[in-house]
């Protein structure tokens, strides 16, 4: 039980930490990292849920695997948009000079 508690508390702590980061850090890359930290917090809670006495529940494991792929996809899309904007801003600045 105590082990479960440690994992859950850590998971929720990471989730809250990421939440603060997303809201109050201006830089877009840091925001993205914060979102990923939040995601890891959620996955930790799920993994803590999976462990029972005697059996390990495969369903949360599958959920975490799915969640990771979705997180990778979302992060990649955000990064792509970021680089895209940055590129265009630089060309605009170059043109205005």
């Amino acid at each position: 039980m105590s082990q479960d508690l440690i994992y859950c508390t850590t998971g929720i702590g990471l989730f809250a930490l990421g939440l603060y980061g997303v809201l109050f850090v201006a830089h877009i890359l840091r925001k993205l990292i914060a979102i990923n930290i939040s995601g890891i917090g959620v996955f930790l809670v799920l993994l803590a849920t999976a462990k029972h006495e005697g059996v390990v529940d495969p369903v949360p494991h599958a959920m975490v695997l799915t969640g990771i792929v979705v997180a990778v996809a979302g992060t990649a899309l955000c990064l792509w948009l970021t680089v895209n904007i940055h590129c265009r801003q630089i060309t605009q600045q170059g043109e205005s000079k």
């Binding site: 989730f15 997303v22 979102i35 959620v42 979705v70 997180a71 979302g74 992060t75 955000c78």
Partner: peptide, 8 residues
């Protein structure tokens, strides 16, 4: 960003 945060 909002969508990802909401999903989480």
């Amino acid at each position: 960003l909002v969508g990802l945060l909401g999903s989480l």
